[in-house]
């Protein structure tokens, strides 16, 4: 009797919580905001991209594909902005991930003081997006800034970091690489999840540290690497504040990142139709790239079970 009672009770979860009205009541706020502030604006943005809408006069005409033609064939600044963004992503994202993994491996130990180190390595990321750090960076790499002052003490004459087309973008790449805190913490959590016995048996077999890294750590971490890569790629393409403050897109548009150029067109030059077209191309590129990384994942991401990353 008691057994059947508990059995009956157990069966309940199968239809537990089936309730359309209550469900939509709870997700209602998100749904409303999604339609009002995401879906409809994106659709409007697509429509705008075929017009020459100007926000000052609040008018625009349908101009077909002119915006896209201008973007891909006429606007030299657009090409330079694509170049700058690609260069930034290609260098900043891998650098950040390599630093993140390297430091995470150093901190994956039970030694005393690791908590303090973890906080120290994470600190630059906590202030990462702030204007204060951007302002500081501009000074550090300024003509008489900290970097050149130090180089001077060593008898080297430092270049005008922010003024030269070859060096300006590197100050921003270094700034990005300096802020590897979040992927580091995610790697750290991943490293802690690798079963110790794998390393122990490898060690008994005489595998050296490098072999253990290559054969155990790296394959076991691929889901985390995959996750971090996606997140960092997306945020890399959207970088704005740092370039806006540190270099203002200069010199010669070598740091005119995509998001910065969209901002200039939309809010400084009021060309919202053209800017919408640029934003849509960005959306497509990010979607395509993410899809490509997802597709490629079956070749290099190793899943222990059916669980997804993170």
């Amino acid at each position: 009797m008691a057994a059947t009672l508990t059995k009956a009770k157990r069966r309940k979860p199968s239809n537990f919580g089936q309730d359309n009205l209550v469900g939509y009541l709870f997700i209602g706020p998100w749904l409303a905001a999604f339609f009002l502030f995401t879906l409809i604006p994106i659709a409007v943005s697509l429509v705008l991209s075929f017009t020459d809408y100007n926000v000052l006069s609040n008018s625009g005409d349908f101009i077909g594909l002119d915006n896209f033609q201008r973007m891909f064939f006429e606007d030299r600044r657009y090409a330079r902005s694509v170049n700058a963004t690609l260069k930034y992503v290609v260098f900043a994202v891998p650098l950040r991930l390599v630093f993140a993994l390297g430091v995470a491996m150093l901190l994956n130990t039970w030694r005393r003081g690791v908590g303090v180190y973890r906080a120290a390595f994470y600190a630059p990321s906590i202030v990462g997006g702030s204007i204060a750090v951007a302002v500081m960076w501009r000074e550090i790499f300024g003509n008489d800034g900290l970097v050149n002052f130090t180089l001077n003490l060593l008898g080297i004459e430092g270049p005008n970091w922010l003024g030269r087309p070859e060096t300006a973008i590197w100050t921003l790449i270094i700034l990005a690489a300096w802020q590897f805190g979040s992927p580091m913490l995610i790697f750290l959590a991943g490293l802690k999840n690798i079963p110790r016995h794998l390393y122990e048996s490898a060690e008994i077999d005489g595998a050296n540290a490098f072999q253990r890294f290559l054969r155990i750590t790296l394959p076991m971490l691929t889901p985390i690497i995959f996750f971090n890569l996606i997140m960092q790629l997306i945020s890399g393409f959207m970088v704005f504040t740092q370039a806006f403050i540190v270099t203002q897109g200069k010199p010669l548009d070598t740091t005119l990142f995509y998001a910065l150029y969209v901002y200039r067109r939309a809010f400084e030059l009021n060309e919202m139709g053209y800017a919408s077209a640029m934003a849509w191309v960005m959306l497509m590129v990010i979607a395509l790239l993410t899809a490509l990384v997802f597709r490629s994942s079956s070749y290099w991401v190793h899943y222990e079970s059916d669980e997804g990353p993170a």
């Binding site: 502030f37 995401t38 604006p41 994106i42 409007v44 809408y53 926000v55 939309a266 919408s276 849509w280």
Partner: peptide
Amino acid sequence: QVQIIPQYI
């Protein structure tokens, strides 16, 4: 960027 321009308008 794709949301912000129509929102602004």
